Simulated scan of single mutants.
Amino acid sequence: MGRVLAAVVKIVIASLMAGAVLSALNISAAEILSEIGLTPEAVFAMLRTGAEWAIPNLVLGSLVIVPIWLVTMLLRPPRN
């Protein structure tokens, strides 16, 4: 868990640094999106579409995976 948290902190720090540099160069997210032919609304629509696909699949998969994981944890021999 510590490695994941350390990775998240590194990503946050790198993102803040990149954002500060881009802000100093007067470059905004809207300008970058318009350069690649997207709008903020289109990005949010893609995120919403992705979430609408992912959430039901996550729930369905967890209905299979969680019970299997629970049984394997219960049947595992005890550690020292």
Results as ranks from 00 to 15, higher is better:
12 V>K: 05
74 L>V: 07
45 A>W: 04
65 I>P: 00
12 V>I: 14
36 I>Q: 03
49 T>Y: 09
65 I>R: 07
34 S>G: 08
79 R>W: 00
26 N>T: 11
31 E>R: 13
60 L>T: 10
2 G>C: 06
10 K>F: 10
28 S>H: 05
9 V>N: 08
22 L>R: 07
25 L>D: 05
6 A>H: 00
23 S>G: 05
21 V>P: 03
7 A>N: 04
58 L>C: 04
30 A>Q: 14
14 A>Y: 01
40 P>K: 05
23 S>A: 15
30 A>N: 15
78 P>W: 08
65 I>T: 11
18 A>G: 00
56 P>I: 06
31 E>L: 07
42 A>S: 01
54 A>I: 05
22 L>N: 08
44 F>Q: 15
53 W>S: 01
66 V>Q: 03
70 L>C: 08
76 R>M: 04
62 S>F: 15
7 A>L: 14
59 V>N: 06
74 L>S: 06
17 M>G: 14
62 S>T: 12
69 W>D: 12
18 A>H: 03
36 I>L: 06
21 V>R: 01
33 L>E: 11
21 V>S: 03
39 T>G: 06
18 A>V: 13
31 E>Y: 01
44 F>N: 10
61 G>A: 12
70 L>K: 10
56 P>D: 07
71 V>T: 09
49 T>S: 10
78 P>K: 15
9 V>I: 14
43 V>S: 06
38 L>V: 09
76 R>L: 09
34 S>E: 12
29 A>M: 12
27 I>D: 03
31 E>Q: 13
61 G>H: 01
33 L>H: 01
38 L>I: 00
22 L>K: 08
4 V>G: 07
69 W>T: 15
30 A>I: 12
47 L>W: 06
69 W>H: 07
59 V>L: 09
47 L>M: 12
45 A>K: 13
24 A>P: 00
33 L>R: 04
36 I>D: 02
9 V>C: 09
51 A>Q: 10
23 S>W: 11
60 L>E: 13
10 K>P: 06
38 L>G: 00
73 M>T: 15
66 V>E: 02
44 F>S: 15
77 P>L: 02
49 T>I: 11
20 A>I: 08
27 I>P: 01
64 V>H: 01
44 F>A: 07
25 L>C: 08
80 N>P: 12
31 E>W: 03
31 E>N: 06
7 A>C: 00
30 A>C: 06
80 N>M: 11
60 L>A: 15
